[in-house]
């Protein structure tokens, strides 16, 4: 296989990863890394660098639309980014200390957990009449978003717990070159009771800023191979865009299950790779 064929293959895989990622709500980075590592035999550190770039691209592209439509809450995003960026710097540093097999192992576990998290119910708790959390009030995190013609109000709860969870999400992002959106949304909608729509939109905004905190460290270590980054970042971006456009048009339930099973298998394979077992 020569360079052109290889890059075309990588680009095709990335489009697919971006597409599937936006369909089931996992980031493209989460899917493209194991594809590059398991199927194309690329070293996990190059895969992480390319994935990190794709994460910033999709965050900027999708985040722009959410921000314009007033769904994301910038105060929540900025405030929680304090935790995620700090975690990301620690995680990126850690990624240089751990070897590739350990990284594969951790990646596999995180992939399985994220896939599991995407299955939970997306029912919102109505917090419009909830008691006002003093920290949330002081930081002015409470807000509203356009929902079905009207504005829906929410009151943010559990700020310290959410902040702590965001630190963990940041570590994972820096450690594995992913957006760790699943964990960010978990912190916001489960711990802080922020409506799911606002959580995903705000997570999208945060992912790019979080990823930026690992960039300097990744670049300094030479994780960004331009020849790999460009088909991956462009491919995931195109795929995610197409996925977002087609999402309302296709029935996703069955597709979602098929992809989730496939991704879980890939996650197991990453774990096997980390343990040195050939499947």
């Amino acid at each position: 296989m020569n360079e052109l064929e290889f890059d075309l293959l990588v680009a095709a895989a990335s489009v697919l990863a971006g597409f599937i990622g936006s369909l089931i709500g996992l980031g493209g980075g989460m899917i493209i890394v194991p594809v590059l590592v398991v199927f194309l035999g690329i070293d996990i550190r190059y895969a992480m660098g390319a994935a990190l770039a794709s994460v910033i691209a999709t965050s900027s592209g999708a985040g722009a639309a959410y921000l314009r439509d007033g769904v994301s809450n910038m105060r929540i995003g900025m405030f929680l980014c304090v935790a995620t960026t700090t975690g990301a710097v620690a995680g990126a540093w850690l990624s240089g200390v751990l070897n590739a097999t350990v990284l594969s192992l951790i990646f596999g576990v995180v992939l399985l957990v994220s896939a599991g998290l995407s299955l939970r119910s997306k029912e919102d708790v109505d917090t419009s009449e909830a008691p006002i959390d003093p920290i949330a009030a002081k930081l002015r995190l409470n807000g509203s978003f356009p929902d079905g013609g009207g504005e829906r109000f929410y009151r943010v709860q559990g700020v310290p717990g959410g902040f702590a969870m965001m630190f963990v999400a940041g570590i994972l992002s820096g450690l594995l070159g992913i957006g760790s959106g699943a964990f960010k949304v978990l912190a916001m909608d489960q711990i802080m009771h922020i409506p799911f729509k606002v959580s995903t939109a705000t997570s999208n905004f945060m992912i790019g800023v979080t990823a930026a905190a690992s960039v300097g460290i990744y670049m300094g270590r030479g994780y960004f191979d331009p020849v790999l980054v460009f088909p991956v970042a462009l491919g995931v971006l195109v795929g995610a865009f197409a996925g977002a456009r087609l999402l309302p048009l296709i029935s996703t339930r069955l597709l979602k299950w098929i992809f989730l099973v496939a991704i879980s298998l890939v996650g197991c394979q990453m774990i096997a790779k980390g343990l040195g077992v050939d499947l």
């Binding site: 690329i42 070293d43 191979d225 462009l234």
Partner: peptide
């Protein structure tokens, strides 16, 4: 950059299997 690069290096050998650092 990518298109020009591939135009010149299409026949090259891809080299991301072993991590060397850029």
């Amino acid at each position: 950059g990518g298109v020009i690069y591939l135009f010149h290096h299409a026949g090259g050998v891809p080299g991301d299997h072993v991590f060397r650092g850029e």
